[in-house]
Amino acid sequence: MNAFSLGREATPAELQAWNIDVRPDFKGLPPGSGTVERGNTIWDSTCASCHGTFGESNEVFTPIVGGTTDEDIKTGHVASLLSPAQPVRTTFMKVDTISTMWDFIYRAMPWNKPKSLKPDDVYAVLAYLLNLAEIVPEDYTLSDKNIAEVQARMPNRNGMVFWKGMWDVNGKPDTHNTACMKDCMPDVKVASSLPAYARNSNGDLATQMRIVGPVRGADTLKPAPT
Protein backbone atom coordinates (compact mmCIF):
# COMPACT_ATOMS: atom_id res chain seq x y z
CA MET A 1 0.00 0.00 0.00
CA ASN A 2 1.19 3.51 -0.84
CA ALA A 3 4.18 1.98 -2.54
CA PHE A 4 4.80 5.11 -4.54
CA SER A 5 4.13 7.89 -2.03
CA LEU A 6 1.98 9.42 -4.73
CA GLY A 7 -1.53 10.65 -4.11
CA ARG A 8 -2.84 11.32 -0.61
CA GLU A 9 -5.64 10.21 1.68
CA ALA A 10 -9.07 11.54 0.71
CA THR A 11 -10.63 13.81 3.36
CA PRO A 12 -14.12 13.13 4.79
CA ALA A 13 -15.42 16.25 3.04
CA GLU A 14 -14.03 15.07 -0.27
CA LEU A 15 -15.59 11.65 0.15
CA GLN A 16 -18.90 13.26 1.02
CA ALA A 17 -18.70 15.44 -2.10
CA TRP A 18 -18.01 12.66 -4.58
CA ASN A 19 -19.22 9.42 -2.97
CA ILE A 20 -22.71 9.88 -4.39
CA ASP A 21 -23.49 6.46 -5.84
CA VAL A 22 -26.58 4.65 -4.54
CA ARG A 23 -26.82 0.88 -4.68
CA PRO A 24 -29.87 -1.39 -4.97
CA ASP A 25 -29.53 -2.15 -1.24
CA PHE A 26 -29.75 1.64 -0.68
CA LYS A 27 -26.17 1.91 0.50
CA GLY A 28 -25.20 5.47 -0.29
CA LEU A 29 -28.74 6.86 -0.22
CA PRO A 30 -28.80 10.18 1.68
CA PRO A 31 -31.63 10.73 4.16
CA GLY A 32 -34.47 12.98 3.04
CA SER A 33 -37.97 13.03 1.66
CA GLY A 34 -40.28 14.65 -0.88
CA THR A 35 -43.94 14.68 -1.73
CA VAL A 36 -45.57 13.91 -5.05
CA GLU A 37 -46.97 17.43 -4.99
CA ARG A 38 -43.60 19.12 -4.56
CA GLY A 39 -42.21 16.77 -7.18
CA ASN A 40 -44.91 17.92 -9.58
CA THR A 41 -43.74 21.53 -9.13
CA ILE A 42 -40.10 20.64 -9.70
CA TRP A 43 -40.99 18.50 -12.68
CA ASP A 44 -43.01 21.19 -14.38
CA SER A 45 -40.33 23.84 -13.90
CA THR A 46 -37.18 21.79 -14.35
CA CYS A 47 -37.86 18.59 -16.28
CA ALA A 48 -40.98 18.97 -18.37
CA SER A 49 -39.33 21.08 -21.06
CA CYS A 50 -37.51 17.96 -22.21
CA HIS A 51 -39.50 15.02 -20.86
CA GLY A 52 -43.04 16.36 -21.29
CA THR A 53 -45.55 17.46 -18.72
CA PHE A 54 -46.57 14.03 -17.57
CA GLY A 55 -43.26 12.33 -18.16
CA GLU A 56 -45.07 10.05 -20.54
CA SER A 57 -44.32 11.48 -23.90
CA ASN A 58 -43.25 14.42 -25.87
CA GLU A 59 -41.72 14.92 -29.23
CA VAL A 60 -38.12 14.60 -28.19
CA PHE A 61 -37.29 11.97 -25.60
CA THR A 62 -38.19 8.39 -24.93
CA PRO A 63 -40.87 8.50 -22.19
CA ILE A 64 -39.91 7.64 -18.63
CA VAL A 65 -43.35 6.45 -17.59
CA GLY A 66 -45.79 4.20 -19.42
CA GLY A 67 -46.23 0.66 -20.64
CA THR A 68 -46.63 -0.83 -17.18
CA THR A 69 -49.75 -2.21 -15.48
CA ASP A 70 -51.09 -3.05 -12.01
CA GLU A 71 -50.53 -6.66 -12.97
CA ASP A 72 -46.85 -5.91 -13.61
CA ILE A 73 -46.59 -4.34 -10.16
CA LYS A 74 -47.83 -7.65 -8.78
CA THR A 75 -45.63 -9.95 -10.86
CA GLY A 76 -42.59 -7.68 -11.00
CA HIS A 77 -42.28 -8.44 -14.70
CA VAL A 78 -43.46 -5.99 -17.34
CA ALA A 79 -45.64 -7.91 -19.77
CA SER A 80 -45.52 -5.31 -22.53
CA LEU A 81 -41.83 -6.06 -23.06
CA LEU A 82 -43.14 -9.12 -24.89
CA SER A 83 -45.41 -7.13 -27.14
CA PRO A 84 -44.15 -5.87 -30.51
CA ALA A 85 -47.18 -3.56 -30.41
CA GLN A 86 -45.75 -1.57 -27.50
CA PRO A 87 -44.27 1.44 -29.34
CA VAL A 88 -41.44 2.34 -26.99
CA ARG A 89 -39.68 0.90 -23.99
CA THR A 90 -40.04 3.41 -21.17
CA THR A 91 -37.69 3.69 -18.22
CA PHE A 92 -40.21 2.13 -15.82
CA MET A 93 -40.72 -0.79 -18.17
CA LYS A 94 -37.07 -1.70 -17.80
CA VAL A 95 -35.46 -0.41 -14.62
CA ASP A 96 -35.70 -3.02 -11.87
CA THR A 97 -34.40 -1.03 -8.91
CA ILE A 98 -35.65 2.32 -7.65
CA SER A 99 -32.12 3.10 -6.44
CA THR A 100 -31.06 3.36 -10.09
CA MET A 101 -33.44 6.25 -10.69
CA TRP A 102 -32.54 8.06 -7.49
CA ASP A 103 -28.83 7.71 -8.31
CA PHE A 104 -29.22 8.83 -11.90
CA ILE A 105 -31.42 11.85 -11.31
CA TYR A 106 -29.13 13.07 -8.51
CA ARG A 107 -25.97 12.80 -10.63
CA ALA A 108 -27.16 13.66 -14.11
CA MET A 109 -30.45 15.58 -14.17
CA PRO A 110 -31.61 18.09 -15.19
CA TRP A 111 -29.53 17.38 -18.27
CA ASN A 112 -28.50 20.97 -18.85
CA LYS A 113 -27.78 21.63 -15.16
CA PRO A 114 -26.75 18.32 -13.61
CA LYS A 115 -26.00 18.08 -9.87
CA SER A 116 -28.19 21.09 -9.11
CA LEU A 117 -30.86 19.08 -7.25
CA LYS A 118 -30.73 18.58 -3.46
CA PRO A 119 -31.56 15.10 -2.08
CA ASP A 120 -35.03 16.27 -1.02
CA ASP A 121 -35.65 17.48 -4.59
CA VAL A 122 -34.74 14.05 -5.92
CA TYR A 123 -37.09 12.31 -3.49
CA ALA A 124 -39.85 14.68 -4.53
CA VAL A 125 -39.44 14.40 -8.28
CA LEU A 126 -39.06 10.63 -8.02
CA ALA A 127 -42.24 10.49 -5.92
CA TYR A 128 -43.97 12.39 -8.71
CA LEU A 129 -42.74 9.95 -11.36
CA LEU A 130 -43.73 6.96 -9.18
CA ASN A 131 -47.18 8.40 -8.87
CA LEU A 132 -47.43 8.91 -12.62
CA ALA A 133 -46.42 5.28 -13.00
CA GLU A 134 -49.20 4.38 -10.56
CA ILE A 135 -46.77 2.79 -8.17
CA VAL A 136 -47.55 5.22 -5.31
CA PRO A 137 -50.67 7.24 -4.54
CA GLU A 138 -51.04 10.98 -5.12
CA ASP A 139 -50.50 11.88 -1.47
CA TYR A 140 -47.28 9.89 -1.13
CA THR A 141 -44.13 11.18 0.54
CA LEU A 142 -41.08 9.26 -0.65
CA SER A 143 -38.20 9.03 1.81
CA ASP A 144 -35.17 6.95 2.70
CA LYS A 145 -37.43 5.27 5.28
CA ASN A 146 -40.08 3.95 2.89
CA ILE A 147 -38.16 3.57 -0.35
CA ALA A 148 -37.81 -0.21 0.22
CA GLU A 149 -41.63 -0.49 0.07
CA VAL A 150 -41.54 1.19 -3.31
CA GLN A 151 -38.86 -1.21 -4.44
CA ALA A 152 -41.25 -4.08 -3.68
CA ARG A 153 -43.69 -2.57 -6.23
CA MET A 154 -41.27 -1.82 -9.08
CA PRO A 155 -43.03 -3.21 -12.19
CA ASN A 156 -39.97 -4.87 -13.67
CA ARG A 157 -38.17 -5.82 -10.46
CA ASN A 158 -38.10 -9.47 -11.56
CA GLY A 159 -37.44 -8.74 -15.22
CA MET A 160 -33.66 -8.81 -15.23
CA VAL A 161 -31.13 -11.58 -15.41
CA PHE A 162 -27.46 -11.06 -14.64
CA TRP A 163 -26.02 -12.70 -17.76
CA LYS A 164 -22.75 -14.34 -16.76
CA GLY A 165 -22.07 -15.55 -20.29
CA MET A 166 -21.19 -12.06 -21.44
CA TRP A 167 -19.91 -10.72 -18.12
CA ASP A 168 -17.00 -13.12 -17.69
CA VAL A 169 -14.31 -13.09 -20.34
CA ASN A 170 -14.50 -16.88 -20.13
CA GLY A 171 -18.30 -16.91 -20.09
CA LYS A 172 -20.33 -19.36 -22.16
CA PRO A 173 -21.52 -18.02 -25.53
CA ASP A 174 -25.14 -18.57 -26.62
CA THR A 175 -24.55 -18.88 -30.37
CA HIS A 176 -22.73 -21.76 -31.95
CA ASN A 177 -21.66 -21.26 -35.54
CA THR A 178 -19.05 -23.51 -37.12
CA ALA A 179 -16.29 -22.76 -39.61
CA CYS A 180 -17.91 -24.70 -42.48
CA MET A 181 -16.00 -24.02 -45.71
CA LYS A 182 -17.89 -25.75 -48.57
CA ASP A 183 -21.56 -26.01 -49.54
CA CYS A 184 -22.61 -24.68 -46.17
CA MET A 185 -26.14 -23.62 -47.08
CA PRO A 186 -28.55 -25.32 -49.48
CA ASP A 187 -29.64 -21.95 -50.80
CA VAL A 188 -28.90 -18.38 -49.87
CA LYS A 189 -31.94 -16.34 -48.92
CA VAL A 190 -31.70 -12.57 -48.59
CA ALA A 191 -33.94 -11.95 -45.57
CA SER A 192 -33.80 -8.20 -45.71
CA SER A 193 -32.42 -5.54 -48.06
CA LEU A 194 -31.74 -1.88 -47.52
CA PRO A 195 -35.06 -0.15 -48.32
CA ALA A 196 -34.81 2.03 -51.43
CA TYR A 197 -35.63 5.17 -49.43
CA ALA A 198 -32.72 4.46 -47.07
CA ARG A 199 -30.13 4.60 -49.85
CA ASN A 200 -29.99 8.38 -49.49
CA SER A 201 -31.25 8.62 -45.89
CA ASN A 202 -27.76 9.27 -44.54
CA GLY A 203 -26.88 11.89 -47.14
CA ASP A 204 -25.21 11.67 -50.53
CA LEU A 205 -22.83 8.74 -50.22
CA ALA A 206 -20.65 10.03 -53.06
CA THR A 207 -19.45 12.69 -50.64
CA GLN A 208 -18.71 10.17 -47.87
CA MET A 209 -16.11 8.05 -49.68
CA ARG A 210 -12.54 8.76 -50.76
CA ILE A 211 -12.11 10.30 -54.22
CA VAL A 212 -9.53 7.68 -55.26
CA GLY A 213 -9.09 4.00 -54.58
CA PRO A 214 -10.80 0.76 -55.51
CA VAL A 215 -14.30 2.23 -55.21
CA ARG A 216 -16.27 5.46 -55.26
CA GLY A 217 -19.28 6.50 -53.22
CA ALA A 218 -22.58 5.89 -54.95
CA ASP A 219 -24.28 9.09 -56.13
CA THR A 220 -27.45 8.63 -54.10
CA LEU A 221 -28.98 11.91 -55.23
CA LYS A 222 -29.84 9.95 -58.36
CA PRO A 223 -31.65 6.59 -58.38
CA ALA A 224 -29.42 3.52 -58.33
CA PRO A 225 -28.16 2.65 -61.82
CA THR A 226 -29.65 -0.52 -63.27
Binding site: V95, D96, T97, T100, F104, M160, F162, M166
Partner: peptide, 24 residues
Protein backbone atom coordinates in the same frame (compact mmCIF):
# COMPACT_ATOMS: atom_id res chain seq x y z
CA UNK B 1 -27.28 -1.43 -11.25
CA UNK B 2 -26.64 2.00 -12.72
CA UNK B 3 -29.00 3.59 -15.27
CA UNK B 4 -26.74 2.40 -18.06
CA UNK B 5 -26.98 -1.12 -16.62
CA UNK B 6 -30.78 -1.22 -16.47
CA UNK B 7 -32.50 1.19 -18.83
CA UNK B 8 -29.77 0.98 -21.46
CA UNK B 9 -27.21 -1.66 -22.42
CA UNK B 10 -29.58 -4.48 -21.52
CA UNK B 11 -30.47 -7.15 -24.04
CA UNK B 12 -34.19 -7.80 -24.56
CA UNK B 13 -34.76 -11.51 -25.03
CA UNK B 14 -37.70 -13.18 -26.80
CA UNK B 15 -39.15 -14.20 -23.40
CA UNK B 16 -39.32 -10.55 -22.30
CA UNK B 17 -36.41 -10.88 -19.90
CA UNK B 18 -33.64 -8.30 -19.99
CA UNK B 19 -30.11 -9.60 -19.86
CA UNK B 20 -27.95 -7.33 -17.73
CA UNK B 21 -24.18 -6.89 -17.59
CA UNK B 22 -23.71 -8.31 -21.07
CA UNK B 23 -20.35 -6.61 -21.27
CA UNK B 24 -18.06 -8.69 -23.44
Amino acid sequence: NAMNETSAYVDLMPDGMLRQYTSI
